[in-house]
Design a protein around this nucleic acid. Structure first.
Lengths: 206, 206
DNA sequence: CTCCATACTAAGCGGTTGCTTAGGTCTAAG
DNA sequence: CTTAGACCTAAGCAACCGCTTAGTATGGAG
């Protein structure tokens, strides 16, 4: 995966597909605010102010505050899914390690988006939640398949495939909770650490 | 650790020290509401209604909604710390396994409290947060010491003690996020699964 | 130029929020 | 019975919420 530099990831490629620019600025402002204060503690006035517009400008591009959250959640889920499944390795251990490295480091690098993705699901409408849950199931299935493939190939020693899948996903997702840019570990270092720990968990010969 | 039975843990021993009974009922109602909807999405009217009292009754026993959150967070942190450090085993691997089993299963069994403990820190006042952070540092230190003791005794193979500590804590804490009472794993089974996975992560011979 | 669509703002509406105030009800001691 | 005090409620206040409305500025087409 690629990484952005700079203190504020305002040029974040995650949102490059969102047009027009004013709508994109609004989404980025909302993601930043939701990430720091949480969805319910963020007001539409906060979002508009951070985007440099009036409170009413939110409703030019989005029907409601919840729709803003939905777009962030949907794009964030899609991005993290593509990061997870974008691995090219064939060997089961190398493949799982690479996927975990990418997925965990994404949750660090894009912790702002990741926090909204992982911790604001309950603020979505039932319809929007259902759409996002489809993506979450594909994320879970991708990890489960990688673990199961390693077991089938005799490369892993895992007594409980679903349990191991749960733990691998849980470990990576929780990075979004504790990661701070000011900490002494870079996203890449976290990815390397977690790839190693996951290989140990699945009993890959190393 | 002991476990309660029954669908609703209203007789939850976690809160047994809170008096008078009306104040305890209010705390339990607040913990349940904060856990489901989050602190900011919960109104003081919600809490009072769930406790079977009028909105004004909240302020007989607590100065503010935030003070309610603080008491839940403080008691919850103290309880989880005592669960983690209440292990009696001496052998490093058995000791770490027992601690992880207890800590992870606590986050499942008491996921209602655990969610408030882990995901509402940012809603605390700076003074109250500082008090809770002291307890969080003791929790982290307890795990780190157990990992370091195993390394010193030659029982564990861990290249990065702080990294492994981070992962162990993260794994257990995240149980509060994904656990559902309707799921097909009991808290005890989760504890057993996680104890095994953690021993693999720290390279304990077994 | 006119015409029209797009993008935006100033002002504000109805409803809800955390919290307060004034007063009522209960128990138990004197 | 009186009184004190703990506990709780009915009513409501000021502030703030998400969102709407009416109107303004801009730029391209005819």
């Amino acid at each position: 995966m690629t990484t952005t530099s700079g203190e504020f990831a305002l040029l974040d490629e995650t949102w490059s597909s969102v047009t027009p620019p004013a709508a994109r600025r609004m989404l980025i402002a909302a993601a930043a605010a939701f990430s720091v204060r949480g969805y319910h503690a963020t007001t539409t006035r906060d979002i508009a102010a951070q985007a440099g517009m009036s409170p009413a400008a939110v409703y030019i591009h989005y029907r409601s505050k919840e729709e803003l959250l939905f777009h962030i959640s949907r794009i964030g889920h899609a991005t993290s899914l593509s990061v997870l499944t974008g691995v090219s390795e064939v060997d089961p251990a190398a493949r799982l390690a690479s996927a975990v490295r990418a997925f965990a480091s994404w949750h660090a690098e894009y912790h702002t988006t990741a926090r909204v993705v992982q911790y604001e699901l309950s603020a979505l409408t039932p319809e929007h939640l259902a759409e996002v849950v489809v993506l979450r199931r594909r994320i879970e299935a991708a990890v489960r398949d990688m673990v199961a493939d390693g077991v089938a190939a005799g490369a892993f020693d895992v007594p409980d495939v679903r349990g191991a899948t749960l733990a691998v996903l849980s470990l990576c997702i929780d990075v979004a909770r504790w990661y701070r840019p000011t900490g002494h570990r870079t996203p890449a270092e976290i990815g390397d650490l977690y790839a190693d720990l996951v290989l140990r968990m699945v009993g890959a010969a190393g």
